[in-house]
Design a protein around this nucleic acid. Structure first.
Lengths: 376, 376
DNA sequence: CTGAAAGCGCTAACAT
DNA sequence: ATGTTAGCGCTTTCAG
């Protein structure tokens, strides 16, 4: 392995100069710099991460903690983080944090404390007090996506507002009997995202003078199959959780279009995957979407486009990019706002804590045809 | 940050002893070991990755190169790798290798060479000669998932055999007019996986005396939408690429069940996502699955279960685990075979190269109802 | 079995 | 602008 000494010798300068020339810290004359660069190039020199890191305390590496890497939302967020961090010249070290207490302990007590990282990004992880303390002790920049969290820069989307926007969209189309597929309690982890969406949804209904009906809420598990089962139940049949050729109903019970009772004319699912299940359930029941029933999802899942699903897109990839960008900003406060300008939403810097208080993450309604006017 | 000296002082021994006691290298008396461990525990000591790595040359960190993190197959493989490596006490550093030449250069010339990693796992990456050389120069254990690759332990699934198994399954059900949705040339990258599946498929047809018909091949892009379009075309209508209520055909042209012409009675899609698109297309056309048309996918995608899709599962998560396990085996040859026994398939060790020649990765037919006997 | 001490390769004062 | 040099925190001979 060619070392800094080899380069120094080849360029006829000291190792300190090589270090300065290559890292850009401290002044080096243009000619010297060029000579050093050339020598390094020729020799194929690359600084040793461990040596540099040991001497400088900087690792050019960010730890990313997330609960799953193999779920759409998280892998999409991760791709955003990775792209942005790589642009900033940082490596990323992946730690998957499940809810297995032993594994978590290992991550927080050992892995993260090996001084391998310059900062930590937590994605959708509800930290216990102890864990928060451990992270804080590191004295490193911390960014969380999804919260609330105390003591760290937290990027959050306002899920109550999402629920509200969803309800308002459906209300504006004239729907009054709007069902909601939300989370079973055991899936309402991680900051109660589903519960918040539901709250916003019900608030908006109330504001519009439409009473939320308990029988129009159906809990599910955030999968396509779960959405299918829930929607089948809501739309008046018993679901199997599987796509089936059966069940083309000829008519519907209840007086469609009414205000107070009967089957729903619209369904809001708390995730796109459940919404897709609902879409398929409606079809299995012989219902037309959106003529007979409108279906609305939340997330911005890639499959939504194929299914013509109207959704509230929260842009997970962009969320990842923003989180990474916030981290880069914390690491180097003089860093200019990035291309996508992910720091535009950083409104004020809290005194002393090195923590940023960003504006909420954006989301938007994407209309694609699965929602329409309420049946007459 | 508490250092090794603090522990040494607290335990009343030298730093060398602390190092030995904690790392398990070299002999330490049980009492001393216990005392050191206790001191470390109390002080909350964790070795510094950079210092340890600089001194020992070991980083306890594996670099993972993959083309995408936000696609189902790759994120699933990654989750397998991460789980297994974490079990082995290794961190993982993620490098996404696109086909942008500049980014690739950065990864192979700089990132990977910072001596941050003890080994590199390449997932589905077709390396250029130059890149292979760069990796080999590292002198580190190298494992590839998907190949062929020269000079490194390569785990491969036999895609020709997959195509063959698929065809044989359909042939055994009496199908003779079998269509294939494969890759458009621009998607046939990375070792021509789709091309190989197609080859196996056509070989098996030939072996059965069923001539492959060029008009029953349809290229697509490995998405649900693409599969839908392709299947719509194969089944005799013009697809829109979107789920539509239209097109319930009343009858079919061609004499179903015949040997030499007419619409296909079965479709093999080269990926589950395309197969799902095909499934939906068949429904849109008013065809029953599998009574009118059988549909078979390849991969083992999580959505397959919901859609009742018969598939050839290649177990991507297990592939990741095996790759990681192979890496751990290379790093520590005395390491016992892992729980899942991912080294059972390592048949022989090539002389000198530190390279293992594993058996092909397994795959299996999972019947779920989307394939059935050919219509009479 | 344990300690002393020489690095590992680089960075950052401090000098010049 | 550049060189000298003292570490960064650990591992690993080499002695004992």
């Amino acid at each position: 392995m060619v070392s800094i000494d080899d380069v120094a010798r080849a360029a006829g300068v000291s190792t300190a100069t090589v270090s300065r020339a290559l890292s850009g810290r401290g002044h080096v004359s243009p000619v010297t710099r060029a000579r050093v660069r050339a020598a390094a190039e020729v020799l194929g020199y690359v600084v040793s991460a461990s040596a540099s890191s040991l001497a400088s305390g900087r690792a050019r590496n960010i730890g990313v903690l997330l609960p799953y890497v193999d779920r759409w939302f998280f892998s999409t967020v991760l791709s955003g983080i990775a792209a942005e961090l790589m642009r900033g010249g940082y490596d990323i070290t992946l730690y998957s944090v499940t809810d297995d207490p032993d594994e978590r302990r290992r991550v927080f007590e050992t892995f993260v404390r090996r001084q391998r990282v310059d900062g930590v990004i937590c994605v959708s992880i509800a930290l216990e007090e102890e864990e928060t303390r451990r992270l804080a002790e590191l004295g490193l920049p911390l960014v969380a996506l999804g919260g609330p969290h105390s003591g760290m820069t937290t990027l959050m989307v306002d899920d109550v507002a999402i629920g509200r926007l969803a309800a308002e969209h459906l209300l504006s189309l004239g729907h009054r009997r709007i069902a909601h597929i939300g989370a079973r309690p055991e899936f309402d982890l991680d900051f109660h995202v589903p519960a918040q969406r539901r709250r916003g949804f019900e608030q908006a209904l109330q504001d519009a003078g439409v009473p939320a009906r308990a029988d129009l809420f159906e809990p599910a598990d955030f999968t396509v199959a779960g959405g299918h089962r829930a929607a089948t139940r809501l739309l008046g049949a018993v679901g199997t959780g599987r796509l089936s050729e059966a069940g083309r109903l000829s008519g519907r019970s209840g007086t469609r279009g009414d205000a107070g009772s009967g089957a729903p004319t619209a369904i809001l699912a708390a995730s796109d995957e459940m919404a897709i299940g609902a879409l398929l359930a409606a079809r299995d029941l012989g219902l037309r979407v959106p003529e007979d029933v409108s279906i609305l999802g939340v997330d911005g899942h890639e499959l939504g486009e194929f299914f013509g699903l109207t959704t509230i897109d929260q842009g997970p990839r962009q969320q990842g990019e923003r989180a990474a960008s916030a981290m880069l900003g914390l690491l180097d406060p003089r860093r200019p706002a990035a291309g996508g300008d992910a720091r535009a939403d950083v409104t004020r810097r809290r005194r002393g804590t090195g923590t940023l208080a960003p504006a909420p993450l954006p989301f938007r309604l994407v209309e694609r045809g699965s929602t329409g006017p309420a049946p007459r």
